[in-house]
Write a protein that binds this DNA or RNA. Structure first.
Ligand SMILES: [Mn+2]
Ligand SMILES: [Mn+2]
Ligand SMILES: [Mn+2]
Ligand SMILES: [Mn+2]
Lengths: 218, 218
DNA sequence: AAAATATTTTAGACTACTCTAAATTAAACC
DNA sequence: GGTTTAATTTAGAGTAGTCTAAAATATTTT
């Protein structure tokens, strides 16, 4: 049985190894779980002990198969709860993360089975992230960050690389959400900002920083 | 901010002071929270420190007003989640307690507000227990344990004094649930078992032990 | 390749909660 | 009222997780 804390470390290690293609470092984990590197070292020993990670001192960490499955189960719960909060309790998509961070630790397989059913077996969470299956299979959609698209190309927003409230609220304001159609009208070679057409109607200028965090598919 | 553990102690103290009219003892609490009396003594000091309880060594404990409100907020959450599990996720009434025991500690006022709304502002949980309001007002229904009713009297099951799965499943089997009408047909002076009519149709003999745990109102 | 710097680990200590064993106080018995 | 028993509290110690400061190792710079 994993503790609340162990679960958070595992999940964090998973996320860090997915995102950056670099290896997962002690400082990186410390940063993500909001502790000091010394504490992380201790925890890494514990997780290695339980063979949830492969860990060699001074070199990075990788999840074992067992660790990966455990991490994905927590992520599954996190994302299902987010769907619940948004679809059933009408939370905004920028309000769900912290609550889901707690709810993901509730230990009841039946609860998650029934919740999944109740929500109609959703495939994606409110931020466009895929919901892993019970046995840890996750459906990575192929997508491109908006700033890498060519002028004239178009596609659909399928995911985000940033979940900060300020970012989500900004997207709300400009009418961008998961599933909306985006066309690249122009790209400034000066500051790399991007001019886009949203939903075949409104035109907008967005910064490169914003463009980087919008994943487009099709 | 209260810890998970502190919340469980508070809630337990509340329940112990409601039920038995006797005072709340260290051993009683230890029994209820599944720890040793020594640990309880420590915690009582802590809760007294935070002025959530009045505590004098070797004499019992009582909740302060602040402590009572805190306890009722947890109980409110517990019971709302139970309603959710039964009404929305089709849990049986004997399956909800342990999960609610975890869910009650999720810290989000908005979540509870929305959940309450989503459930249609229920007044009672699946076991017939009243759901306290946000500001800690609880509606104690007047009721009598079935074994105290006179022959010929009838009423409606409004609550239970026992939540063990085995008891709830037994009630399922004999067709007793919250809201069902019961009439007392006879009482044995030998073993104090009670003959009842359920729902104006089936007749049953139930033990005194069972009768004690069914609260009837009218 | 040596020196300087950054990263990571260890050592030692702290908090929250728990336990067993011993000491204290209260309650029950005679 | 004094003795026995039961309830409660204290003392001392353990686990999980955290921290700071110091030591060890790796990386970068010159
Ligand atoms: Mn979490
Ligand atoms: Mn999400
Ligand atoms: Mn609880
Ligand atoms: Mn209940």
């Amino acid at each position: 049985m994993l503790s609340y804390t162990e679960e958070n470390y595992l999940k964090t290690i998973y996320h860090l190894s997915e995102n950056g293609s670099k290896d997962v470092t002690t400082n990186g984990i410390a940063d993500a779980v909001n502790t000091k590197p010394a504490s992380v070292s201790d925890m890494l020993k514990k997780l290695a002990q339980k063979s949830l990670i492969d860990y060699i001192k001074y070199q990075g960490v990788t999840l074992t198969d067992e660790g990966r499955v455990k991490a994905l189960k927590i992520i599954r719960k996190h994302r299902l709860w987010e769907v619940f909060l948004v679809n059933k309790l009408s939370f905004n998509w920028d309000e769900v993360h912290d609550v889901a961070e707690e709810l993901e630790h509730i230990k009841s397989p039946l609860l998650i089975k029934r919740l999944d059913e109740f929500l109609g077996f959703p495939q994606f969470d409110p931020h466009g992230d895929p919901i892993p299956t019970e046995d840890g299979i996750i459906n990575h959609k192929r997508s491109v960050p908006l700033h890498q698209m060519e002028i004239g190309m178009s596609g659909v927003v399928v995911g985000l690389n940033e979940t900060a409230s300020s970012f989500l609220q900004f997207l709300d304001k400009i009418g961008v959400y998961i599933g909306v159609k985006i066309k690249v009208l122009d790209k400034s070679s000066f500051d790399h900002s991007v001019e886009i057409e949203i939903d075949q109607t409104s035109k907008m200028m967005i910064s490169n920083e914003v463009a980087k965090n919008l994943n487009i598919s099709e």
